[in-house]
């Protein structure tokens, strides 16, 4: 029925496949266990964000009492599970109200739903907690989906350049050094102003900017692996190039993939806030909320809950992913392994 519902099914199937693979492979299973032992809280938090993102993607029509709402058009659209939990169509105020307040912030009129907003309401009277929850999906899309697209692409170019060498390597290396020569934020801005605004455009721009560093890493690693004894042996036995790449090169790059995913994710989510400030971010992101809350601090008395809600949601996600990524690097990177021995 809906594209996002289909996407949820695909993502959940991929996730199930990943879990199955991790459980069957001894090396990955032990790594996952040691990750869980080291960072139980951070892993749980990342998992919770993932669940919220999924809950905010499953949507269907109906469930609103149309007589109670002013905006019938909005209420007739498909609503996600998060929408249903907060029911913003019927539960809203006229303007600002502080957390748990029973009166409006300006004027002091009674609220229609006193005490029910844990993080208050924004200028348009929307529940800030609800908006912060809605930002989860945007952040996961910007960070997660972009890296899921970028990493295979970078892997393809990096590995083929490193493995086949020659002209192909020259060409890929030239494109990479060209893109790397442009300062990152300028490249992002140039891409988005040229492509136009929108979620897809932002993801594409972030992808074009982000793939180079991982492709370089993959190329350098492939160059090393190509000379290793087992690859030489496989080639001498007449194994085809594709099989060598699939069986010998890619599995040896998988730890780099996992580490890059975590690093790229936080970098992407944080860059989006800068784009939001420049007015070219994604609608409904935390960056946009922070940007809109900028002037509210200069009011007297100050309105802090909008800024607080968005930046805490962002901070906790980025911190947890950073912590998980750090632990993953320690577990998977053979160099740190050697240091520990």
């Amino acid at each position: 029925m809906l594209l996002s519902n289909l996407l949820v099914v695909v993502i959940l199937m991929l996730f199930a496949g990943l879990v199955y693979y991790v459980r069957t492979n001894r090396l990955w299973r032990e790594s996952a266990q040691s990750l869980w032992k080291r960072r139980p809280i951070a892993v749980t938090v990342v998992g919770l964000y993932f669940v919220v993102g999924i809950l905010d993607s499953v949507a269907w029509v109906g469930g609103v009492d149309l007589s109670k709402t002013q905006d019938v058009v909005a209420a007739s659209k498909p609503r996600t599970i998060i929408d249903r939990m907060f029911s913003p169509e019927t539960r809203s105020e006229r303007s600002y109200s502080a957390p748990f307040a029973s009166k409006e912030f300006y004027g002091g009129a009674d609220l229609t739903h006193p005490g029910s907003y844990w993080l208050g309401t924004d200028r348009l009277g929307r529940d800030v907690l609800y908006l912060a929850f809605k930002g989860v999906k945007v952040a996961l899309l910007v960070g997660g989906l972009t890296s899921l697209i970028v990493i295979p692409l970078a892997l393809f170019f990096g590995v083929s350049a490193g493995y086949f060498g020659g002209r192909l390597d020259d060409a890929v290396f030239f494109v990479m050094s060209t893109l790397a020569a442009i300062p990152g934020i300028l490249l992002l801005i140039a891409l988005i102003t040229a492509l136009g605004k929108g979620t897809l455009q932002v993801c594409v721009a972030l992808g074009v900017t982000g793939w180079v560093s991982f492709a370089r890493l993959a190329r350098a690693e492939t160059l090393k692996l190509r000379e290793s004894d087992y690859v030489q042996a496989a080639r001498a036995l007449g194994v085809s190039d594709v099989t060598i790449i699939m069986r010998h090169i890619l599995p040896n790059l998988s730890h780099l993939m996992v580490i890059t995913f975590a690093l790229l994710f936080t970098a992407l989510v944080l860059s989006e806030t800068i784009l939001a400030y420049l007015g070219i971010g994604v609608d409904g992101s935390w960056g946009q909320m922070i940007d809109q809350a900028r002037d509210e601090l200069s009011r007297d008395p100050i309105i802090w809950w909008n800024l607080f809600g968005a930046s805490m949601a962002l901070f906790i996600l980025v911190l947890s992913v950073n912590l998980v990524g750090d632990a993953v690097r320690d577990i998977l990177d053979p160099r740190t392994l050697r240091e520990r021995e």
Partner: peptide
């Protein structure tokens, strides 16, 4: 350091 890295520059400025 980890805490400081997880805060967006927008928040530092504001």
């Amino acid at each position: 350091c980890m805490l400081a890295m997880s805060v967006t520059i927008l928040l530092y400025i504001i």
